[in-house]
């Protein structure tokens, strides 16, 4: 009945679904008030915007290019949550926010989110749709446009929070050359070393999603994070158990996962 070689995967899926759905239900009913630690990069975001106010220079924000229809959509969604947070802060501090975008489907969302951020700070009239700029859906074309904007507008802070790929270091180095304070975050591990060497603060992997959940205060997102953390605990236990058992010559656990 169950396809050969997929029984273990089905088991993992069932456990994962039960855990995450269970926690989501508890979170929605208000029976779970998950508390997550404040990620250091979040404090840096607020400090950066304060720095922009002192220098009278704009903030640049970008969410990368993980499409909303791709498996990596979670990073773009997290980036958009943080965009709302940054928009609110930028409006409060009276700092110009420039959002450059390379995903066509994100453009209307970006305009909406930035406008809502200004409205939430009581500065709705200061919202300028020209500062929400779709440049190109081709990565290198977007990159050349974005680094041009960063240079011409003389940005003082650069936030790159979302799904970043080949263009990550080019953008980060351009921001560094501007003397901008930089906060970056992505789950793409191949880009993390570039961000870590060049940027001032980095949200590594899950920290990006946690930061987004923290600022959104959305119980569903927070609950989802808790469910994911339980899954990770199970994964840690299985990895340690499997490594120990394999070391002493017992490969039953490994065989179990090949079912």
């Amino acid at each position: 009945m169950i396809a050969s070689g997929r029984i273990a995967a089905l088991g993992i899926l069932v456990v994962g679904v039960m855990l995450i759905v269970g926690v989501l239900i508890l979170a929605k009913k208000g029976k779970l008030s998950p508390k997550i630690r404040k990620v250091p990069g979040l404090t840096a975001i607020e400090e950066s915007i304060g720095r922009c106010t002192e220098m009278g220079r704009p903030v640049h924000f970008a969410v990368g290019r993980s499409s909303l229809t791709s498996p990596n959509a979670a990073e773009t969604i997290a980036g958009l949550s943080l965009l709302g947070h940054v928009a609110k802060l930028a409006a409060q501090y009276g700092v110009e926010l420039i959002f450059t975008n390379q995903l066509p489907e994100v453009q209307p969302l970006g305009e909406d989110i930035v406008q809502q951020g200004f409205v939430a700070s009581g500065k709705g009239e200061q919202y300028d749709s020209k500062n929400v700029r779709f440049l190109s859906s081709f990565a290198m074309a977007y990159t050349s446009g974005a680094i041009g904007i960063m240079h011409r507008e003389k940005i003082a802070a650069n936030f790159m929070l979302g799904g970043w790929y080949a263009e990550s270091l080019i953008m980060a180095e351009a921001g560094f050359n501007q003397g901008a304070i930089q906060v970056a975050g992505t789950t793409q591990f191949a880009q993390l070393p570039f961000f870590i060497t060049v940027c001032d603060y980095v949200l590594i992997g899950e920290e990006l999603l946690a930061a987004a959940a923290y600022v959104s205060e959305d119980q569903v997102q927070l609950g989802s994070l808790v469910g994911q953390d339980f899954m990770k605990l199970i994964a840690i236990f299985l990895v340690l158990a499997g490594a120990l058992l394999s070391t002493v010559g017992l490969s039953d656990l490994a065989r179990l996962f090949r079912l």
Partner: peptide
């Protein structure tokens, strides 16, 4: 592994309209 768990969670949230 963390990324795969994150994709599973996102997929569930989309399927369950959350």
């Amino acid at each position: 592994i963390c990324s795969a768990i994150g994709v599973l969670a996102l997929g569930l949230r989309v399927l369950l309209r959350q």
